Simulated scan of single mutants.
Amino acid sequence: MADTINLTAEAREEFGKGASRRIRRQHKIPAVLYGRGEDPIHITLPGHDTMLALRQANALLSINLPGAEEKLALPKQVQRHPVRNTIEHVDLLIVRRGERVIVAVPVVLTGEPVDDVLVNQDLTELNVSAEATSIPAQIEVSIEGLEIGAQVLAGDVALPEGVELQDDPDSLIVSINPAIAVETMLETGEEEEAGEVEETEEQDAESAAE
C-alpha cells in the first residue's frame, strides 16, 4: 500500500488566469480542495514536490495549511499543459481515514509466457473499492508460463485484503495469442504494398508510352 505524502500548502486569495500564471511562474501549482460537504479551499502547492507526488497513481496526500487542520486528499483531476506536460492545476478530493473510495488502479503484468506468443493486454487499469489509506499502488497480474489461448479475467485476479473489484468480473485483462498471426499480417501487408507499388509503376509506364 502507498504511504501518505506530506505537502505544505499556502492559502490562495487571488483567482483568475492572471493569478494562476503568476503562481506557476513562482514554480508553484494552483489547486482546490473539496468534498465531504465542505466549502472549497483554494490553495497553492509546491511545484516540484507536487509533481513528484503525482507520479504515483492515487497518491494519498496529507495537505498541511498554516493555522488549519491536516486534510487527507486524493487527486481527482490533474490539468497539464498540452505541449510541455507540466501541471497547471490540481483538483483534490477530501477523504477520511477508514473511508472507502472507488479508484482506478494500474495493472502491471509480471512473469513471462511460453515462447513465440503474443501478449494482448486489454485493460491497463482496474476499478476497485478500497479504504482511502489502503489503496494499492498497482495490481499485479502474473502471465508466467501462460500458453496460447490462455486468458486472465478481472474476476481471476487476487486482490489485496480489503480491496474489492468494481469492474465486471468477466472483463478481459490479458490474452495469449499465436505470434504467427502478427507475422502473417505483416507479410500480407508487405505483399499488398509491393503490389500497389508495382501497379503504380505499370500505370506510369503506360502513361509515358502514350
Rank of each mutant, 00 (worst) to 15 (best):
G149N: 11
E198I: 07
G111S: 09
R80G: 09
I43G: 00
I135L: 07
L118M: 12
A154I: 10
A205L: 09
D115T: 13
A209W: 00
E198S: 06
H42N: 10
Q121D: 07
V182L: 14
K76P: 06
L33K: 06
L74Y: 02
P75M: 12
G18S: 11
N127S: 13
K28C: 03
Q151W: 05
R21T: 02
A19S: 04
K76L: 02
I94A: 11
E206Q: 06
A208K: 12
V152Q: 01
L52D: 07
E144K: 13
L60D: 01
A137M: 14
I41R: 15
I87N: 06
S62M: 15
A53T: 01
K17E: 10
I102N: 15
A158R: 14
Q166S: 10
G155P: 00
H27Y: 09
E202P: 00
V197Q: 07
K17W: 14
L92D: 03
V117R: 03
A205I: 14
A31W: 03
H48K: 13
A208T: 15
P82Y: 00
K71T: 10
L109W: 04
V128G: 06
L123R: 12
A130R: 05
D156L: 07
P82R: 07
E144A: 15
I102W: 10
N85I: 06
E196K: 15
S62H: 07
T124F: 06
A11P: 11
A31Q: 02
E99Y: 05
T124D: 13
G98V: 02
